[in-house]
Each structure stands twice: as structure tokens, then as C-alpha cells.
């Protein structure tokens, strides 16, 4: 199935959880957050959150700034 990650088309296996997406993307253990369709999903819910076709993910991480 196809989803968008930070506006980029990405192919994923069916019935992936957000946790599996995080693993596929090799996200670091801290300093990241994910939102599905513009709603933040707490890390504790990643293992149970099923990602559907055409979902749009925003994945952010820490950056330098003032």
C-alpha cells in the first residue's frame, strides 16, 4: 500500500503499524514524533496504530534553532 511520509510517496506492506513504519524508517529512539493525518500519535500507541492506504504521516525530529 502507498502512504505519504512527509509528503513523499512511500510503499509499505499491508496492515503495518506505526511502530513498523518507525522501524522501516530507522527512526532514532528519542527526539522524534509522528502524526497521522495531522494528529499526533503518542509513542505508546505506535504498536497498535494501524496505518491505512493513503494515510499521510508527518515525522519530525530535533533540530538546532533559537
Amino acid at each position: 500500500m502507498r502512504i505519504k511520509v512527509n509528503n513523499k510517496e512511500t510503499e509499505l506492506p499491508e496492515a503495518s503499524t506505526l511502530q513498523q513504519v518507525a522501524e522501516t524508517l530507522a527512526l532514532p529512539a528519542r527526539g522524534v514524533a509522528m502524526a497521522v493525518n495531522n494528529r499526533m500519535v503518542p509513542r505508546a500507541e505506535w504498536p497498535t496504530r494501524i496505518i491505512c492506504e493513503n494515510d499521510s504521516l508527518v515525522v519530525i525530529k530535533a533540530a538546532c534553532g533559537g
Binding site: N6, K8, V32, V59, K61, A62, A63, G65, G66
Partner: peptide, 10 residues
């Protein structure tokens, strides 16, 4: 200390 956020570049 302030920090910012940015979208991850995979």
C-alpha cells in the same frame, strides 16, 4: 536551551 523541530529527511 531552545531546540527546533524539522521534518525528517530519510
Amino acid at each position: 536551551v531552545t531546540v527546533a523541530m524539522k521534518r525528517i529527511d530519510l
